[in-house]
Simulated scan of single mutants.
Amino acid sequence: MTYYVPRGGLPGQEQLTTDRAVFTEAYAVLPRGTMRDIVTSRLPHWDDTRAWVIARPLSGFAETFSQYVVEVGPGGGSERVDDDPRAEGVLFVVDGTPQLRIGHTLHDLRPGSYAYLPPHSGWSLRNDTDRTATFHWIRKAYEVVDGIDAPEAFVTHEDDVAPEPMPGTEAWATQRFVDPLDVRHDMHVNIVSFEPGGSIPFPETHVMEHGLYVLEGKAVYLLNRDWVEVQEGDFMWLRAFCPQACYAGGPGRFRYLLYKDVNRHARL
């Protein structure tokens, strides 16, 4: 597997300013070229760490989640990872080999590692190597339901999660890290893959909000009324009910990390 990893930097003065970045009432596209050194954030109680905040709850933008691309330098990490006791999270590693602690259990992570972390799971993360480690961190305020327990923490790897082809095609598949029938979970973070020529053959319109980070390849994506070219390293936000479709023209696979909110009543 390959995963795009942002490296920051800054374009030279000879570069054109025009790019593909767009922010609308229904969707946003943050191309990989927007993830530069000058737009990184520092996180409280994280050492030698910087983050690209690519989604956060905001009027007219993401409503249910935040998403960071976190780069932890050698010797960096945190024992106090989050100051919000409601926060659940998913980590997906794209570079390096950080070590995750959940309670008293240590997990050695590598590219492709996936961790689900419920609220109050008591986790921490260190990078005790001589190279940077980079991971996606998707956070959501867990929606408690009376009579239903919160899910347990778990760590897995995408190599251990078989792709499930969509009905009637081998060209479009999803790796589901959580059982979709398990209503304890109020968010899913999956990997969606298209072989060259694969497509979403109709405009999906649904209640789930989406965050899509392209891990590999390129495609054209329907966002509301617009067909937009996207490539590895780009991030897309889609408002609930925003029409979407996709065509992966190749030459290689097109894969993205997908967030969506699920399994809860609509707030009234």
Rank of each mutant, 00 (worst) to 15 (best):
D182H: 06
P163R: 07
F61G: 12
P167K: 05
A55D: 03
Y68Q: 05
V93A: 02
G8Q: 07
W137D: 06
W227F: 11
I38N: 15
I200W: 12
A87I: 01
E14T: 13
I148D: 11
H185P: 00
E164K: 13
R239D: 06
G211D: 04
A87R: 03
A162D: 09
T34N: 15
A150V: 09
Q99F: 03
I38D: 15
H265Q: 15
P119A: 06
G60P: 04
P201A: 09
Y221K: 15
Y114R: 08
P118E: 07
Q231D: 14
A248N: 07
F194H: 11
M35N: 05
R184L: 02
E204K: 14
V145Y: 10
A55E: 01
T34M: 15
M35Y: 10
R267W: 14
D83E: 13
M187S: 02
R253W: 11
F65C: 05
T97N: 07
F65S: 01
G249D: 15
L258Q: 12
V70P: 00
P44H: 05
G96M: 04
S199A: 14
A240R: 11
A115M: 02
F65A: 03
P165F: 03
T64P: 02
N263L: 05
L43C: 01
L258P: 01
D19W: 13
R176T: 01
V90F: 06
D37N: 15
D130F: 07
T132L: 14
W52Y: 08
W46A: 01
C246I: 12
P163A: 07
E25P: 09
S41A: 12
G96N: 04
F92I: 02
R7T: 08
D149Y: 09
T169R: 13
P165V: 00
G197W: 08
P11S: 11
R20H: 15
P165Y: 06
V144A: 14
G33E: 13
A150D: 09
P243M: 05
P203K: 08
L10K: 15
S59W: 11
W237S: 04
Q15Y: 15
G73S: 03
G9S: 10
P111L: 08
Q15W: 14
V183F: 10
V189Q: 08
P44Q: 10
E143G: 09
G75A: 06
G77Q: 02
T132F: 12
V262I: 11
Q99G: 04
V70D: 00
L258I: 07
Y221F: 14
E216R: 14
E88S: 05
D95G: 08
P119Q: 06
W137E: 05
E170H: 12
F235H: 11
V230T: 08
G252A: 10
W227K: 13
G249W: 12
M166D: 01
P11K: 14
V53S: 08
H136D: 00
G250Y: 08
W227Y: 12
I148Y: 08
G168V: 01
E71P: 00
F135Y: 12
A26V: 03
V220A: 15
K218Q: 15
E204Q: 14
V93W: 04
R80I: 11
R80Y: 13
F135D: 01
